[in-house]
């Protein structure tokens, strides 16, 4: 099946969440796009779908999923993919994304983004699943690097190496979550600079920015706080390497008024502008 490419898009957006529905319905918001959680709209009907259609009339929309289970040893759920395709056909999104992870096995679903071992076996499985999903959706996917709290014996690749091989083999692209890099690198005592050095930057099509919290033993990807300085600094480094890439603020808990998220988004705009200045000067 033909897979259409992804149209270049470099705007700034936020994750659209229920507390801001009325703001978005009242007037166009000062964003270039919104991202929605796909599963929240993979429903039969009702107000959620109506709201999404009305927002879509005003804004570009990216679909971001949490349940694809691309690391499933049993293969991806065909019914899930069919439902996702229906939504994508309705919304005509900028792109469709999900996470490099698995969510369950033997019919069990944890509803969490569980970590994969970065082995050749896992890579082959993920690539086979990605091929099937991309064919079924008729479009390339964006895959997001996860926050992880464990690593496994026997891993032969770093996460960026795994991502690079996955993109190279399947044609998928990357949704780079800068907060997840910081969280995972800190939890596994890795260097974020090394992480950035190994990334296949040419495949990055979108960036997530979010906050995290300090757990008892490690950092937890909670999306419940403003983007911290550590993540802004890493974002500046990423911008210098990748140039303009669609960027959004992701907030899922303790959601503030829209105006506060838009202020954070302005900060992202400023950082991206400054960090990419040298690239523009070089190009000129």
């Amino acid at each position: 099946m033909q897979r259409n490419g992804i149209t270049p898009f470099h705007g700034f957006g936020i994750g659209l969440r229920p507390p801001h529905y009325e703001d978005f319905l009242a007037a166009p918001a000062r964003v270039d796009f919104v991202e929605v959680i796909s599963e929240n709209f993979m429903v039969d009907g009702g107000r959620p779908l109506d709201i999404l259609h009305r927002v879509r009339d005003r804004h570009a929309v990216a679909l971001h999923g949490v349940s694809m289970n691309i690391g499933a040893v049993d293969g991806v759920d065909v019914a899930y993919i069919r439902r996702l395709r229906q939504l994508a056909d309705r919304i005509d999104p900028l792109w469709v994304s999900d996470h490099l992870c698995w969510t369950g096995v033997d019919g069990f679903n944890s509803h969490d983004l569980l970590p994969l071992p970065y082995t050749e076996e896992a890579l082959a499985l993920v690539c086979a699943n990605l091929d099937r999903v991309q064919d079924a959706l008729g479009r390339p996917l964006l895959m997001e690097n996860p926050s992880t709290y464990v690593a496994f014996d026997g891993a032969r690749m770093s996460e960026p190496e795994f991502l690079a091989a996955m993109c190279s083999r399947t044609g998928c692209q990357l949704l780079l979550d800068v907060n997840n890099i910081y969280v995972s690198a800190t939890n596994h005592d890795l260097s974020t600079d090394t992480w950035l050095d190994e990334l296949p930057w040419q495949h990055v099509r979108q960036v997530h920015l979010a906050g995290h919290s300090q757990g008892e033993h490690m950092l937890i990807d909670t999306h419940d706080a403003p983007v911290p300085r550590s993540v802004w600094e890493l974002y500046a480094k990423a911008c210098a390497r990748m140039g303009p890439v669609a960027t959004m603020i992701e907030r899922d808990d303790h959601i503030p008024p829209l105006v506060e998220l838009l202020a954070e988004l302005d900060m992202a705009r400023d950082i991206a502008f400054v960090a990419t200045a040298s690239r523009r000067e070089h190009a000129a």
Partner: peptide, 10 residues
Amino acid sequence: GASMEGMSVY
């Protein structure tokens, strides 16, 4: 290879 602390987060 997976630490108990990490597994407790999940």
